[in-house]
């Protein structure tokens, strides 16, 4: 099966006069692509654009060989079927008034006619595939646990036989043991169905588990890109380093990353920089050049790309505590 890829090419997204995402390019492949960022980084906005829910201010969303807005009716329907979302909160993603079976059925009949018997058989099959008891089809979302809801959302997405899942914080609303099981499920489904994943999260461990390549987003810009394992082991951008050092680990006292304490107290969300590096106010390595000249994504060797003037120093351990 030749898969059509989903790509963002130099995409800029804005709400009104506020630009949220600045010229981001990425491509979703079968290895899994992670989009790492904290709240306000523009990651969810980018996901909405890739799902065709938001029109780019500039740049292109491309599926296969065609640009999204230029697609005809049939192609657009194919795109709709091929790219499916799994959002953070399963209780939000399912119509609270519909039974689980009806929600899945809606996906099944969105593009094809299906008789009742075939539909019910397929619903049972889909629920079983995500590890749910088919009897739960008769339940409403609030009667399920958080993990079961998230499984139901995944079952609905699979109903249209998608090629790409856009996963927006798929586990962060769940208990830890449930999180682990959902990640197992996602890993198995990818192998069985040949799915491409775009995983949006602030949880580095989840990205490490599911994505071969990752992009780190800060204030709407990609600041670092590379192989996930490599990126997490040896960050080249001070922000990536701060993110990974901030993750609490069992048995290791959490170090407050230098990049966190360096932030002048009282400043709120990262300001969008007109000039200079967007991270400069929080960066412990910021020098005059960082205030004057915005860094562009450049090759840092080994398939790594990074937008930092002092990436080499970060790589060589200048920020190690």
């Amino acid at each position: 099966m030749s898969r059509a890829t989903l790509r963002a090419e130099d995409v800029t997204l804005a709400y009104g006069h506020t630009t949220v995402v600045h010229g981001v390019s990425l491509s979703v492949d079968e290895g899994g692509v992670g989009l790492i960022g904290e709240s306000g980084s523009g990651k969810t906005t980018l996901a909405r654009a890739l799902l065709g829910l938001l029109k780019p201010r500039s740049g292109r969303i491309v599926y296969g060989s065609r640009e999204l807005p230029a697609m005809g009716r049939g192609e657009r329907a194919r795109f709709r079927g091929a790219v499916q979302p799994v959002f953070q909160d399963g209780s939000e993603a399912l119509d609270p008034r519909m039974r689980i079976g009806a929600s899945v059925a809606e996906a099944l009949t969105a593009h094809h006619r299906m008789d009742r018997a075939a539909r019910e058989a397929r619903i049972a099959e889909l629920l079983a595939d995500v590890g749910l008891d088919p009897a739960l089809a008769a339940r409403r979302p609030h009667q399920l646990s958080g993990g079961q809801r998230q499984r139901a959302v995944i079952a609905r997405a699979l109903a249209v036989r998608p090629e790409v899942l856009v996963l927006d914080e798929p586990t962060s609303a769940l208990d830890v043991t449930v999180q682990a099981r959902i990640l197992d499920l996602l890993q198995r489904l990818r192998e069985e169905h040949g799915l491409g994943y775009l995983l949006i999260t602030h949880n580095l461990a989840v990205v490490d588990r599911l994505c071969r390549t990752s992009h780190v987003l800060y204030a709407g810009r990609v600041v670092e890109t590379g192989a996930t394992r490599d990126l997490l082991t040896r960050p080249a951008h001070p922000y990536t380093l701060a993110l990974r050092d901030a993750v609490p680990r069992i048995g290791v006292p959490t170090a407050v990353p230098a990049a966190v304490t360096a932030r002048p107290a009282g400043t709120g969300a990262p300001a969008v920089a007109d000039r200079g590096c967007p991270f400069r106010h929080r960066c412990p390595l910021a020098v005059d050049r960082c205030h004057a000249e915005p860094p562009v994504l450049r090759d840092a060797g080994g398939g790594r790309r990074v937008a930092c003037h002092r990436a080499e120093e970060v790589l060589s351990g200048a920020l190690r505590q």
Partner: peptide, 26 residues
Amino acid sequence: GRGFIDAARCLGVPAPKIVFRHVLPN
């Protein structure tokens, strides 16, 4: 603006159906 409406749009459910099946009852 809720998630299940986005989900329905992503499934390609036509707008009239979204309005009368999801938005109206809720």
